[in-house]
Design a protein around this nucleic acid. Structure first.
Length: 641
RNA sequence: GCACCCGUAGCUCAACUGGAUAGAGCAACGGAUUACGGAUCCGUAGGUCGGGAGUUCGAAUCUCUCCGGGUGCGCCA
């Protein structure tokens, strides 16, 4: 594959730089914007210009002169401001792409990584904001696994928090329903809770005694006893079950559900607390506004410079632990730094392990990670920093360093979509700003509603094109297309940009969309089928490809081959930078190139065998590349559409 | 007040982390021989990269400073 070519050239270049200039330099590689310029570009001379105080072009020319080019290099030129550009043997590269696996896991990568994502409060239906989290987390896990890491996916369930408490109040105090009645409510249960949750919010307003009910419920959830706690368990159970079903529709699953009730029930914090107190990371505050609390000072860390209040409360004056305190304890567990462990039980119906206080003796090993990646939206950056600072204060510098907050910006609703759903008045158009979603206010587009709409839309499109499809096949295809549309929509956005969710945009199946990618794959399959029907070979062997004369590789064919060759590099970069959108864009680029070639270079009626072989080989390379990327992105590839 | 994110074509966004002529998709306009499926392709038009200054061979990208928008900074989670 290309990375071996690339590695070879980098090595040769580094040696040459060392020999000529006596400088240690690790060359980076780029792909020139146009193929006439070359296939691989080394900007080494540009970078060396400063240290050597010399004209970059002059340096490049010196490097190029008598360069010991290996056999797979056809030509070497100095271009632009001082790029060292290599032209490769096209047949050789294409042949290798067909004979070797595209991404080979790094054998040194066997590191354990915990990826936490989804983390939806178990008190209401999932909305599109949650989908961004889950899809990013899922793609990240795929990428890391492909790179050779041992990945454990965790989904944290806050089953002792205020959000759940409010819905418990809604059932027991507002609706005055018994447990059996709640258990008997028909699906979709999470939709019912969605409405109830915002109703409770309104019910509290102006009635000082009602929020007191929340305190009662919260207390019950924390201690795990009494009818309110029972109700909490029931609601949480049913809602989580729905969330898992929603995510399953998108191909997303988990290795472990971690329950906050287990963190509390097993008293993880007391263990963490010992560590925090004995190392002096937290101390007791005798006076001032935090009198009676255990606090963690943040002033020492320059990350928190300029903070109004440089102290963070970890234990409240009533002895209860704050959210941050729990999170630090949980983070310690993930790294295996806590002497305690969870108990585990396998949830048969959902086929997933979960944490409990009293579990099964036999279970897989969880936690004990070398690296922890928390997929949490950017609004929680401050808290994630504090958790990290906590590990630092405890002296776990390595683990603090490996505590990674995968931050992404939130999803809001576009004015048009907000209006469509009745969250904005039609006449307030001068205030046409994006609307933040809010579970509390019931503002948001539910995940299942969106998937349903996507499926309906694709079903309509498919049935108009394929009259002969059975209802069963129609369902499968409609689902595959809907999943691709949704997942691609979420991944193509760069993480640090707010997505203003617009329904019409999400339902668009043209241009840069998941279905566009799928369509390119379907076309490639069709060519193979038609070749078979015409009695022509449907495949070219890597050996035959290696022997093709150079002139059969038109620039646009070669351009696509080269783009496929870059997939390993792109995947590594995405895993390292946590910018997954680059993979979506690269997949799109492949599909665009393929579609263009499809029109310009017909295969079926091409008489020249060598040219037909090159085109066919390009198609095979494309299918390989697109399949790899689709697997990473979780986009199903249908066989027709 | 302090911190983080965003500002690029009419709209939604890219630009390989300082590189080559700033690119895509929508929308608009014009085209693609009864051609491997038109969810496609080709073309036209569309830009003071928010403003200004600085750093250097070279800036959409780095620094400073304004302007505009978003978010965060609890003994909530």
């Amino acid at each position: 594959m290309l990375s071996s070519f690339k590695g070879e050239l980098s090595r040769l270049l580094a040696e040459r730089i060392q020999a000529l200039f006596g400088v240690e330099y690790e060359p980076g590689v780029e792909v020139p914007p146009r193929r006439e310029l070359g296939d691989l570009a080394f900007p080494a001379a540009l970078h060396l210009a400063r240290t050597l105080k010399r004209n970059p072009r002059g340096i490049a020319e010196e490097l190029a002169a008598d360069f010991p080019s290996p056999a797979f290099v056809r030509d070497l030129r100095v271009e632009g401001a001082g790029y060292l550009n290599f032209f490769l043997d096209r047949s050789l590269v294409a042949s290798q792409l067909l004979s070797e696996p595209l991404i080979q896991p790094d054998s040194t990568a066997g590191e354990r990584i915990v990826v936490e994502h989804t983390n939806i409060n178990p008190n209401k239906a999932a909305h599109v904001g949650h989908l961004r989290n889950a899809i990013l987390g899922d793609v990240l896990s795929n990428v890391l696994r492909a790179l050779g890491y041992a990945v454990e996916v965790e989904n944290y369930i806050d089953d002792t928090g205020v959000q759940l408490a409010d819905v418990v109040v809604g059932f027991t105090d507002l609706r005055k329903m018994a447990q059996e009645q709640v258990a008997a409510l028909p699906e979709p249960f999470d939709y019912y809770c969605w409405d109830l949750y915002s109703e409770v919010g309104r019910w509290y307003e102006g009635n000082p005694e009602r929020p007191e009910l929340r305190r009662l419920a919260l207390q019950a959830l924390g201690h795990g006893g009494g009818p309110r706690a029972e109700m909490g368990r029931l609601v949480s159970r049913r809602v989580v079950s729905r969330h898992l079903a929603t995510m399953r529709r998108l191909g997303i699953s988990y290795d472990l559900l971690t329950h906050e009730s287990a963190v509390l029930g097993l008293d993880f914090f007391s263990e963490a607390s010992e560590q925090l107190k004995s190392t002096g990371a937290v101390h007791f505050e005798a006076e001032g506004k935090n009198a009676g609390c255990w606090i963690m000072p943040l002033a020492a860390s320059e990350e928190f410079a300029g903070l109004e209040d440089p102290d963070k409360v970890i234990v409240r004056s009533d002895g209860t632990v704050t959210y941050v305190g729990k999170d630090i304890a949980y983070q310690l567990w993930k790294f295996g730094l806590l002497d305690k462990d969870f108990q585990y039980r396998f949830w048969q119906a959902e086929e997933v392990w979960e944490t409990t206080v009293d579990g099964e003796p036999e279970h897989p090993i969880f936690g004990k990670a070398d690296r922890v990646i928390n997929v949490i939206d950017a609004r929680q950056s401050y808290l994630q920093k504090i958790v990290r600072a906590g590990l630092e204060a405890l002296g776990y510098l390595e683990q603090a360093n490996q505590s990674i907050h995968f931050a992404y910006e939130m999803v809001t609703l576009s004015p048009a979509t907000a209006r469509q759903f009745g969250f904005l008045d039609d006449d307030t158009e001068e205030e046409a700003r994006n609307l933040e979603m809010s579970g509390r206010k019931g503002i948001g587009v539910k995940a299942d509603d969106l998937i349903d709409q996507l499926e309906a839309k694709s079903r309509e499109e498919i049935s108009a094109r394929n009259r002969d499809l059975s209802p069963g096949d129609l369902d499968i295809l409609a689902h595959q297309i809907a999943v691709a549309a949704l997942r691609f929509f979420m991944i193509k956005a760069t993480t640090n940009r707010v997505i203003a969710f617009d329904l019409d945009e999400a339902l668009s199946f043209e241009g840069d969309s998941g279905p566009y990618l799928q369509y390119s794959a379907v076309r490639a399959l069709n060519i193979g089928r038609r070749l078979g029907e015409a009695g022509l070979p449907t495949q070219v062997s890597p050996e035959d490809v290696a022997g093709l004369p150079p002139e059969v590789w038109a620039d646009d064919l070669w351009d696509l081959v080269l783009a496929v060759a870059l997939i390993p590099q792109k995947t590594e970069a995405a895993g390292g930078s946590l910018e997954l959108s680059t993979l979506a864009r690269h997949a799109l680029e492949l599909a665009q190139k393929f579609h263009a070639i499809y029109h310009r270079h017909p295969i079926l009626q091409e008489q020249d065998v060598a040219i037909r072989s090159a085109r066919l080989a390009t198609m095979q390379v494309f299918v390989r590349g697109l399949t790899v990327l689709s697997d990473l992105l979780g986009l199903p590839l249908p066989d027709r559409m």
